[in-house]
Simulated assay, not measured.
Amino acid sequence: MSNPLWVLTVLVVNILISEWLENHTFLKHMGTTLLVIILTAVVANLGIIPSATESSVVYEGIFTFIAPLSVFFLLLDVRLVDLKKAGLPMLSMFLLGAVGTSLGALMAIWVVNGPSVFGEHYKALAGMMTGTYIGGSLNFNAIALHYGVMKEGGLYAGTVAVDNILTATWMVATLLLPRMLGKIWKRVGNRASTRDIEGKLPEAREMVSIWSLAVLLALGGGSLLFADWLAVALNEAYGWNFPSILIVTTIALGLAQFKGIRELQGSRLLGLFTVYLFLAVIGAFCELAALKGIGELAIYIGLFTLIIVAVHGLVIFGVGGLLRQDWDVVAIASQANVGGPSSAMALAKSLNREDLLLPSIVIGSLGTGLGTYIGFLVAEVLL
């Protein structure tokens, strides 16, 4: 079943099923993001669509074009002046979590002896995991694309599988920790009135005109073309192996500050849908056989990733507790780091914190842009 049309149809149907499950069943607390990954992982492991080792031109196209476009479209929702809406506590906890992730990556490389275990890819893996646990899986793929780790089938598939497992586990943890820790250290945060944010949350459905859709697609495609051209030009002129995804990120963040761009409808829908397609492929790459195939290396990848998440958790929840922060705020900030904006928003809904929905989106979007930069910083500078 490797026909590209069949593969694409199954991926889209999985998104449809996941969206329905999120809206109409008890699985709503898991969120569409996690459901898409799990459902596609099951389908791929059953052999209905190709897995990581078999690959597909559809997967390659999504990684090459759709993944960067999803970054572009989602970042068009980031308003730098709106960061104040997240509030100082939420923003500070998010940045603290980013620091915890970076420290965790450096510690993990040292504990598992990264250069010896992972060889030449140890820097890339550290950058990928730093990026993904600061702003979600988009950063993971952006860095993996640059270093060509996806061409290392077993290593990439094993890392993705472990990453997905830990991401899902951390979602459960951030659901439980506020309740558990609230019994030890009383929460001091105040719930804002939902009336204060009424009408300000992004609409789940947008009326998209042909004009807006055409402009957004033209901007996205043009930005990708320009980013690729500039990256090549910089490499030829100065010998800089500059990641084109960083150029796309910078362009999107710049465009997002203009009123005309803000008035375009559909960027969030395009962003979410392309993200779901990307996550579906990540699910397809969550191949259980891949863990068996790489043998002992799977244990090291698991330990490596577990250390990063553990250090992140200890830093953000430990310092958050010492500063007597609202546990819900800490948990959502942590989920914005580890899972990205969609996961953070889903967690805010699950914790019944309507007042934190908008801040979760804002800091989650910030992480989508920031994670790639810090991931490359860890890989190229700190290591």
Rank of each mutant, 00 (worst) to 15 (best):
A256H: 09
F317S: 05
A280E: 01
S244V: 09
G302S: 12
N241K: 07
T305G: 14
L277E: 01
A310R: 08
V315M: 06
G266I: 08
N241L: 04
G271S: 03
G321R: 03
I301W: 04
S334E: 02
A284I: 01
I299M: 13
V275S: 12
L314P: 02
F258A: 09
L255N: 06
I308Y: 11
Q265G: 10
G321M: 04
A333F: 10
A333M: 01
L306N: 08
G302E: 09
I294S: 05
A290P: 00
L246H: 09
K349Y: 08
L264H: 07
A333C: 02
A237I: 03
L269T: 13
L279V: 00
V329C: 11
A333D: 00
L291T: 04
S342K: 04
V275E: 00
I299P: 11
F273G: 05
G239N: 03
L272H: 01
L253C: 15
G302M: 03
Y238M: 14
N235D: 12
S334V: 01
L314N: 03
T305D: 11
R262D: 11
P341K: 09
I247N: 10
G340L: 06
N241I: 07
K292T: 14
G339K: 01
V248H: 11
L279Q: 01
I307Y: 12
Q257K: 10
V338Y: 04
I308V: 11
E236H: 14
T305Y: 10
S267R: 13
L270G: 02
V311D: 02
G302R: 09
V275Q: 02
S343N: 06
M345R: 11
S334W: 05
A331K: 06
L264E: 08
W327M: 10
A348D: 02
L269K: 13
V311I: 12
V309S: 03
G283A: 01
V319I: 15
I299K: 12
R262A: 13
V311W: 07
G313F: 03
I316A: 00
D326F: 04
G295K: 02
A344G: 03
A336W: 07
F258K: 09
F304M: 14
G302C: 08
L255M: 13
I307N: 09
S350W: 07
L270Y: 04
V319R: 00
F242D: 04
Q335H: 03
V338L: 11
S334Y: 06
T274H: 07
W240T: 11
K259V: 13
F304Y: 09
Q335W: 00
L272G: 01
L253I: 15
V319L: 10
K349Q: 09
P243K: 05
G260L: 15
A331H: 04
G239T: 09
L246S: 05
I251D: 08
I294T: 05
V330M: 08
I299L: 15
G260W: 15
A289M: 12
A331Q: 05
L269S: 14
E296A: 15
G302K: 11
D326R: 06
Y300Q: 12
L306Y: 09
A348H: 05
I308Q: 07
G260V: 15
R324Q: 13
L347R: 00
E296V: 14
S350Q: 11
I251E: 05
Q335A: 08
I307Q: 09
L322A: 11
L323N: 08
T250H: 11
M345W: 11
Y276C: 07
G260C: 14
I261M: 08
